[in-house]
Amino acid sequence: MINLTINGLPVSVEKGTTILDAAKFYGFPIPTLCHKEGLSPYGACRLCVVEIGEGSAAKLVSSCTYPVEDGLKVRTASERVLKARRIIIELLLASCPQSKTIQDIASRHNVRQQRFRQEYEDCILCGLCVRMCKEQMMAGAIGFRGRGQNRSIGTPFDIKSEVCRLCGGCIEVCPACQTRCTYTEPGKAICGGCANLAPPCIEKEQFHDMMCYMSPCVACEIKKA
């Protein structure tokens, strides 16, 4: 067991636990965005920052990727952490203001405006979809491409993937495209998948181990009935 203190409270957790999990277990909330149970930690969004160490050695780390250490002193809500978190939220809002997930996080943290140049990105490169596809859907159909400004998510060679299971898992976890479904305004609808009574997954018979992630879809059940 590893002994550490979180916000002054001495606690002990198993070796290998992340600060995030330890804090959650002891009831200290830490907001997250690119972290999801069942997927490996990735540390892309930095929303989960906490402060560790003391005095001049104190530093900010992402709690979702930082394994606990003996004697670690963690502060999950210090002045510095709150300030950094607000800036991160502002940056997220600056790149993807239309995301419901990000809007919710902003309002929970009382961030009412952002001071950066406004952009409208489709993707915040959180990597959730990539990990979902690879680790839960065992498909590895999508991944990161390019670098820096040109980094993007997609399939190799930008062509339809042969290994995609059409499970919808990537869309389900995406914090940026959650608001994209506009089926109530059919003119603007992107896919209409939810109203599709002959969903493509049914034709994809080659997937003997079809994994379905779309909890509201149930189109296959309707067809059976």
Binding site: G140, I142, G143, G146, R147, P156, F157
Partner: peptide, 24 residues
């Protein structure tokens, strides 16, 4: 492209990952 597909098949590394490295 053919070489990358072959490489994915032979090494067991997913094409997505290889493509990611090749474009990085």
């Amino acid at each position: 492209e053919k070489a990358l597909r072959l490489l994915a098949k032979e090494t067991g590394c997913s094409l997505t990952d290889i493509y990611g490295v090749a474009t990085f």
